[in-house]
Amino acid sequence: MSFDKSAFNYKISSDHKSGTDLDILKRLFGNKKFDKTLDVATAAGHCAKIFNAKQYVVSDLSFNMLKETLTDWSSPSAVQNCAESLPFQNQTFDLVSCRIALHHFREAESFFKESFRVLKNKGFLVLIDSLVDIDDAFLTTIEFVRDPSHFRSYTFKEIVDMTSGYFRIEFMQLLYKKHNFGEWAERLNPSRKRLKKITQAFLALPENIKEELSLEVTDENILSYTDKKAVIILRKL
């Protein structure tokens, strides 16, 4: 698994260890205390640490990601599992969070149903992920070139449709996140051949998509691009 080989890169990643999205969570949940929280696809646990809980549980499909989370944080219980089938009893958690991972899930609707099941009544589901428009298929294609585990990002309407009947949306904020291209492209330790392929895919984008992504290029060297993220707070019905 590519994430096992690059777990430390995610721990130190500027895209993951900090960000406006985490600042928003601190503002929204800073005064709330929970008995038990679950962070799904936790990576290095950056999101899980935001919340004030008596008991933390972190889960991830990657064993090494969980090891990185526990290296300097002894509080959580760690469980290795996939997001679409959570090995927990009904109504166990006050809050479930999932940050920058939904686009990897091949059965996103199953994740939402499982989150609903393991949450207590009126529990929170905190979701942060890429948000796309209809014409953002170009970026999805490039993401797959970089990381074959990337499945797809969703539109806001698709997320609303998948969660309808299970959750109500209490908060949503759209963010524009600027990525250092070199750090982003090399995070999964690609071969030179794959790195060149990622770069060429960006350079071959139509001009209107380059403009949409605010692509910064100097002498055929890509410096950065900007995509859309959404912070969505849902409440169990």
Rank of each mutant, 00 (worst) to 15 (best):
F63P: 15
L102P: 15
F112K: 09
R152Y: 11
D161A: 09
E143N: 05
E114I: 10
P76T: 00
T141C: 14
H104V: 04
L86S: 00
V126Y: 01
H150G: 02
R152K: 12
F144G: 12
S130M: 11
L174G: 07
S85N: 11
H103G: 10
V132Q: 11
F112N: 09
D72S: 13
V126K: 03
L95Q: 01
G123I: 02
Q91K: 11
T92S: 04
E109Y: 13
R106N: 15
Q89A: 10
N64Q: 11
E158Y: 08
I169S: 02
S149K: 12
I128L: 06
H150E: 00
S130L: 13
F151T: 12
C82K: 11
G165H: 05
S75H: 15
F112H: 06
T71K: 15
G123S: 04
I100D: 05
F111W: 04
D135P: 15
V132C: 10
S85D: 11
K122N: 13
E158K: 10
R152E: 08
D136P: 03
K157T: 12
D133G: 12
N180S: 04
T69P: 06
L86E: 00
R99Y: 03
A83T: 03
I142L: 09
K67M: 07
Y154W: 05
H104R: 08
L139R: 08
T155P: 01
C82Y: 15
L102S: 13
S110M: 14
L102V: 15
R168W: 15
S153K: 06
R106H: 14
D161M: 08
D60A: 03
V160C: 11
D94H: 04
E114H: 13
S74P: 08
I100C: 07
Q80C: 06
V118A: 04
S153T: 06
Q173Y: 12
Q80V: 06
A83R: 05
I100S: 08
F88S: 00
R152Q: 11
F156V: 13
H179Q: 07
K157Y: 14
D136S: 07
L175D: 00
A83I: 02
S77E: 13
K178M: 04
F111L: 12
D147P: 08
